[in-house]
């Protein structure tokens, strides 16, 4: 069940990859997708120096989407392999992102991976500090946006080149 579904979804993602994303798909291990994601222009995660260059903007983030054996009855797990200063991404070696439709109790079997990819992109543009996994970063974001922006950009420079 899950294999078939994952293949189907991969086909769909390839046909309709959201802008600034690239999926590295290993046929031997279809339950783990590697996603390369450019920080969207509108976000703090775009690399400022490169902004002028039209080809590739933004920091390069590596993500992993792994599908549990129970997929699609359990949500896929999204984790940032590249460190990112973001209220909704855990600031540890896992870099897990778990909110919205990715939550186990909110996940719906008909949901598609494309929707997950879009959600990630949206969250980079507009973090959701009210549903944060890192309260201190969320606090920064809400109370002290300047500081947040500065740190976030520093991290992009440091980790996401």
């Amino acid at each position: 069940m899950s294999t078939k579904r994952i293949m189907k979804e991969y086909g769909e993602c390839v046909a309709d990859t959201p802008e600034g994303m690239k999926i590295n798909f290993d046929e031997n291990k279809i339950t783990k997708w590697e996603v390369l994601l450019d920080g969207p222009d509108q976000s703090v995660y775009a690399l400022p120096e490169v902004l002028s260059v039209s080809v590739r903007q933004g920091g390069h983030f590596k993500l992993e989407i792994s599908f549990p054996p129970e997929y699609p009855f359990k949500p896929p797990v999204v984790s940032f392999k590249t460190k990112i200063y973001h209220p909704n991404v855990s600031n540890d070696d896992k870099g897990s992102m778990c909110l919205g439709l990715l939550r186990a109790e909110e996940w719906k079997p008909p949901n598609k991976v494309v929707a997950v990819l879009r959600l990630i992109q949206t969250l980079l543009i507009e973090p959701n500090p009210d549903d944060a996994i890192e309260p201190s970063i969320a606090n920064d974001y809400k109370e002290n946006y300047k500081e947040f922006e500065k740190t976030a950009k520093e991290w992009v420079k440091r980790y996401a080149k």
């Binding site: 996940w107 719906k108 008909p110």
Partner: peptide
Amino acid sequence: CQHNIEASNC
């Protein structure tokens, strides 16, 4: 429906 029926864990 989304929250109380379709959600996989409800």
